[in-house]
Design a protein around this nucleic acid. Structure first.
Lengths: 185, 185
DNA sequence: AAAACTGAATAGATCGGTCTACATATTTTT
DNA sequence: AAAAATATGTAGACCGATCTATTCAGTTTT
């Protein structure tokens, strides 16, 4: 793949992620993807012969990898798990507010839309969440119940993001942040 | 509105709730609603002149009210908040597994899809969540941080439902149930 | 008889996807 | 090095299907 081609491919994934994060899988049309990315229709099917599913699948995977990497970064030596999650919540709140409540979790909407009706995408979402759970588990390895705790922390963050988006407010993120210490203290 | 009309209206709402819970707002077509409900096309726009938004809005509100009522039921005298949430999680797990991972939260998918792109529906979802938060707050009234705790419990349950649907497994619900005691113990 | 409701036809937009012609690189042959 | 051949990528017209919404004469219910 030449350089130009790689750039077009990336622009398509960028546009897809942006749009899907805002309105979900069914709420995003390929015409929009083409318009936002500036890439022509032919290029879309050249780079993603699998069509919409492949495009969204790769886009979700890419976004998932980026976040998974961030979760897996070597912990600050003197930051407790609670402080770490606290920072994550603050960061997510910033991103959410700055994007006018468009950018929450890049996986959640697709996960809910496709869980029961699109096996390939369900699998992608499941794998992404599993990778995040693993990263959190590693961070909580000192705890005896690290497995349960990792899933619980992820559920808490995802739920807080959902409520924040639904209310168009950082409030749920802040409330959850205050309670995270009870869980991880 | 005659009796027949009321039945048709209800059947339309039933079908809408079922379909929207499975595939979301954008993933549900009015043709499907008509097919599943058995109601004629003309009746849809007779009973819901506001079109799809009104139909989905009322459907989400109705589902929200049902759950809100359940959350607000007078507590068993000798059931702790933790035991109550535990029961909710078990009930949700049953519903989810029995429906083949179709029936999770009847609000979440719509909330995420519409948060940034459909003001009327965003408002409906926000109000439903607020009512649930109020019901939970009432149940936790003995706690000094009942406000934060209610939102946190709701986030936890919503997050667990999201992960359970994404993984097509009750596992996240069970893990969260085990940790809920740390939070509410 | 009046009000409530239905059923079918239809409109115009948009959906995801296919196809072919063309342009631009890159490699191979001479 | 020039020319020919091949691979890579772009551009957009076009397809049938489906989308939400409207209309309105006819039927059923009250």
């Amino acid at each position: 793949m030449g350089q130009k081609g790689a750039e077009t491919r990336d622009r398509l994934l960028d546009a897809t992620q942006e749009l899907v994060e805002t309105a979900g899988y069914f709420g995003t049309g390929l015409n929009q993807v083409i318009a936002v990315s500036g890439a022509p229709r032919g290029s879309l099917y050249f780079h993603f012969p699998g069509g919409k599913d492949q495009l969204v699948g790769e886009s979700v995977r890419r976004a998932g990898r980026a976040i998974g990497d961030a979760l897996g970064e070597p912990a600050d030596t003197d930051a407790s798990p609670a402080e770490f999650v606290d920072g994550v919540l603050r960061h997510l709140g910033d991103r959410l507010a700055e994007s006018d409540w468009r950018k929450g979790c890049p996986v959640a909407t697709v996960a809910l839309e496709t869980a029961a009706v699109n096996d390939p995408l369900q699998e992608v979402c499941s794998e992404v969440y599993s990778s995040w759970e693993a990263a959190l588990r590693a961070r909580l390895a000192s705890r005896p119940d690290a497995d349960d705790l990792a899933v619980t922390v992820l559920a808490l963050v995802e739920g807080a993001l959902l409520l924040a988006r639904a209310h168009r407010s950082r409030d749920p993120l802040e409330r959850v942040a205050r309670q995270i210490h009870t869980l991880l203290g």
